[in-house]
């Protein structure tokens, strides 16, 4: 017959295996902090070096230039955002490898594959929509779309990692929706959504789980 100790061990093992097999937990809070700092840096670069500290409201700004100059500017801003995204992903990837290594887990398994698929599907839709908005000159809605689709991606991926990612997603989504109603202040919403929220999330996770 089973002893009490054995039963407790069994239940512990069951719980651990259920979690390990369905959630990717090798995410580091530091990834969030780095992504936040990079996003704010990206916004400052856009503000000081690309927009040249012109009027803060995008609409006024673009309205005051020739269409050729506006197009160059748009692509420069997109490149800036792209660099921020790539660097953030790179750091997240490095921190995850380190954390997984420390816990003796692998980073490429069926859970992480599902996590990535669920993350990138909404991001892909958002990316295509943003290109369409750029082509059609709907500048106001680009940053709201970034935030909304990123939020949806996190909500979707949250099922396969820590629950906090899900709530971060909801906050990003709300930030994006508010931004859509307050046209022209996109850069500030960008700093709040991608900068402050990420740093906040990172600090919370870091204090909860360590590196």
């Amino acid at each position: 017959m089973k002893s009490e100790k054995e039963s407790i061990e069994d239940i512990k093992a069951i719980r651990r295996i259920m979690e390990d097999s369905s959630r990717f937990l090798s995410l580091s809070g530091l990834s969030g902090v780095f992504a936040g700092i990079l996003a704010i840096t990206g916004a400052l670069v856009a503000w000081f070096f690309i927009l040249g500290t012109g009027p803060f409201r995008f609409g006024d700004y673009f309205g005051s230039m020739t269409s050729g100059a506006a197009i160059t500017l748009k692509w420069k801003l997109l490149a800036d955002a792209g660099v921020v995204l790539l660097l953030s992903l790179f750091f997240a990837f490095c921190f995850s490898i380190k954390k997984a290594g420390k816990d003796g887990k692998s980073i490429w398994n069926s859970v992480s594959r599902r996590l990535l698929a669920n993350l990138f599907l909404p991001l892909f839709a958002g990316g295509v929509l943003i290109i369409a908005l750029m082509i059609n000159n709907q500048i106001h809605f680009i940053i709201p779309c970034f935030l909304i689709f990123y939020g949806l991606a996190l909500v979707n991926a949250g099922k396969f990692t820590m629950g906090e990612v899900y709530y971060l997603g909801i906050l990003e989504m709300i930030t994006g929706l508010v931004a859509a109603f307050v046209p022209g202040w996109s850069l500030l919403f960008w700093i709040f959504g991608f900068g402050i929220l990420h740093i906040g999330y990172g600090v919370v996770m870091y204090r909860k789980l360590g590196v």
Binding site: D10, A13, I17, M18, S21, S22, S106, N109, S110
Partner: peptide
């Protein structure tokens, strides 16, 4: 058996799981 408990635990929370992933998890 611990292995059977493990297999069942994985499959209870995942729609399906392939052999190699099971092997790695357990």
């Amino acid at each position: 058996s611990r292995v059977r408990l493990g297999i069942m635990s994985v499959l209870m929370v995942n729609e399906s799981y392939d052999f190699n992933s099971l092997k790695e998890t357990l």
